[in-house]
Structures are given as structure tokens and as C-alpha cells.
Amino acid sequence: MKPLKEFTIPFVGLKIGKHQFEYKIEEPFFEYFEYEEFNDVKVDVNLELDKKATLLELNFKITGAVNINCDVTNEPFNQHIENEFDLVVKFGDEYNDEDTDILIVPHGTYEINIQQYIYELIVLAVPIKRIHPGVEDGTLDSDILKKLEELSPKLKEEKDIEEEVDPRWNTLKKLLTDK
């Protein structure tokens, strides 16, 4: 998979200090990763790169919305997402990304590609259980919800439950009240 050019930062020409980068992420970005869970994507990524003499500190902040399908009703809705991530880029003998917060790149590297970090930040910001806000507050009118309500097991009335109690238990309960 060839890296996307717009997410490659050539840091060798940057002065020591803080630098700001902004990206607008939309659906074609996820098509590149062949990720098809989102119907639509509108996410802003703010990246602050702090270049120091021996390392780079990257602070990612994402905000926006992804349009996904509800797990209960399969109705599409916009899920607001926010996430933040700090990455330290150090220089070493060989490439190493085993630690999630530290990336080691070989000496002589002059650019870094951040597309994978942005992809993971957005995907991990989406809740595991995706429930339409209308399901939670009861305002969504959906055929699927009506069918689920129709097929759900009905709770018996409390008096029916009391009638089904074995009469021997009632005798034992008298022992507690007869003191």
C-alpha cells in the first residue's frame, strides 16, 4: 500500500519549535484503507509537531462526525467523535513501532507519514456499541423497533407471579411474621 502524499511530513526542513498542520478527512481516505463501516465522514485533524534537536513530538486532536448505522435498528446517524493522541518520534538504528506512543525511525530519515495514526484515531474514537440517539430517548420511529417490541418476551403481572408461588412457602413466611 503506497502512502498518501498529503499525509507525509518532511520535517528535515522545519525549524526547531512548534508547527501546526490541519487535515480534513472525508470518505475517500477510508476507501484507501478499504474500510467500509462509515457511510460518510467529516473529521478535522489538528496536528501540532514540536521539533526538538533529537526527537519530534506529535500531538493529534480529532473532532468531527462519522455517519454510521445503528447496531439495533440499522438506521444511519451521525456520531460525534473526539480523540487525542501523543506520539514521540525518536531516531535509532532501525525502524521500530512496537510501542504505541514511541516511534523509532532510522537516522537519516527526513519525513514521516501519519496516515495510519489518523486512521486508527478515527476508528478507535467510534463507540463499540453504536446506538441511534432516537433509540435511547424513544423518539425514533422505526419498523425494526416495532418488530423488536412485538417479539420481545412479555413480563407477567406481579399478581400472576404470586399465584404461582408454592403454598408451602407461604407457611414458612408465617414463621418469620409470628415472632
Rank of each mutant, 00 (worst) to 15 (best):
K2N: 06
K2G: 05
P3Q: 12
L4K: 11
K5V: 11
E6R: 15
F7K: 04
I9F: 14
P10L: 14
P10D: 15
G13A: 15
I16R: 12
G17L: 08
H19L: 05
Q20P: 02
I25N: 02
E26S: 15
E26A: 13
E26M: 05
E27G: 09
F29H: 01
Y32H: 14
N39Q: 10
V45C: 09
L49K: 04
D50R: 03
K51R: 15
K52N: 13
T54V: 08
T54P: 01
L55V: 03
L56N: 00
L56K: 02
E57N: 12
N59W: 07
A65V: 09
A65C: 01
A65P: 01
V66S: 08
N67W: 03
N69H: 01
D71A: 10
D71G: 08
T73K: 02
T73D: 05
T73R: 06
N74A: 02
E75H: 03
N78K: 08
Q79W: 03
E82H: 15
E84Q: 15
F85T: 05
F85K: 10
L87H: 00
K90G: 08
F91S: 10
G92I: 11
G92W: 08
D93R: 13
D93I: 09
E94R: 14
D97N: 11
D99L: 09
D99C: 02
D101E: 11
I102E: 02
L103Y: 00
P106R: 13
H107P: 03
G108Q: 05
T109M: 08
I118A: 04
E120W: 03
L121C: 10
I122V: 09
I128F: 14
R130I: 06
P133R: 03
E136M: 11
E136K: 13
E136C: 03
G138N: 14
T139M: 10
S142T: 10
I144T: 12
L145P: 12
E149Q: 13
E150Q: 15
L151F: 13
L151T: 04
S152G: 04
P153Y: 00
P153V: 01
P153M: 00
K154L: 11
E158M: 12
D160A: 06
I161L: 07
P167W: 07
N170Y: 14
